[in-house]
Amino acid sequence: MKTIKVSIVTPDGPVYESDVEMVSTKATSGDLGISPGHMPLVAPLEITSVRLKKDGKTEFVAVSGGFLEVRPDQVTILAQSAELASDIDVERAVKAKERAEQRMKDHHAEHTDFRRAELALQRAINRLAVSERRM
């Protein structure tokens, strides 16, 4: 089967690098699936999971603040943070979720802290979902 090279890089270092059969994820404009031979594309990603299909297995990576860049020979995902499903600190994500929920209760919806807490909550939920591989 044809494969395409995928690398996921963050400011704290590369997270994933391998040849896969298909990449699927969610961009701001909708779900995306990239197979080898896709046309060059740039799209911002939601706080979401990236699914990497390889040898019949699927790997999950949680990303936030990311971009997808597709070139003829390579897919690159630039993200402010990214973790493999197996590397996610579940306990920390649960705590972050509780903290964010608490903060959202404390602030009004117009407050900037509210928006921040909302994003933090999204990230925490995303991490938890990816760690359970149920996306």
Partner: peptide, 27 residues
């Protein structure tokens, strides 16, 4: 230079990408 397709549009991507780029420079 590769001519990309932009999803949704180049302007909207720059809107997100440029601040991130500037932040990365500082980091």
């Amino acid at each position: 230079l590769i001519s990309y397709t932009f999803e949704p549009s180049a302007e909207e991507i720059l809107e997100v990408l440029l601040p991130q780029y500037a932040e990365s420079l500082i980091y």
